[in-house]
């Protein structure tokens, strides 16, 4: 009987210890997850900021190019060139 009780106690202590260890590991894992997610988020935010800056720079470049395109109509100059060529031929 005594041995049986001691055995039960040992089993219970072992099971209790295992449960605590399991939950502790789970807890640590989740904490790591949060930290990992936070790091990823920070990286994504930083990358987004860099992309936004790149888009802004690109937009300024595009604005300049659009001005240039607007003032340099292809068809107009093509026609003028052909007309001048005709006059010379």
């Amino acid at each position: 009987m005594k041995r049986f009780l001691i055995l039960i106690e040992i089993i219970l202590i072992t099971l209790g210890g295992m449960a605590v260890a399991y939950f502790d590991a789970l807890y640590k894992d989740n904490i790591e997850q949060i930290s990992y997610q936070e790091q990823s988020r920070q990286m994504a935010i930083q990358e987004t900021e860099e992309l936004e800056k790149a888009i802004d720079d690109l937009n300024s470049e595009i604005e300049e190019l659009e001005k240039k395109e607007e003032i340099s109509q292809y068809l107009l100059w093509k026609r003028r060139l052909e007309e001048l060529q005709d006059r010379l031929s």
């Binding site: 997850q33 997610q37 936070e38 990823s40 935010i45 990358e47």
Partner: peptide, 16 residues
């Protein structure tokens, strides 16, 4: 909290 962090992270990644 992990789920929330994941969501926030995903939002940031989607934006990126």
């Amino acid at each position: 909290e992990v789920q929330q962090a994941k969501m926030i992270c995903e939002e940031a990644m989607e934006e990126r």
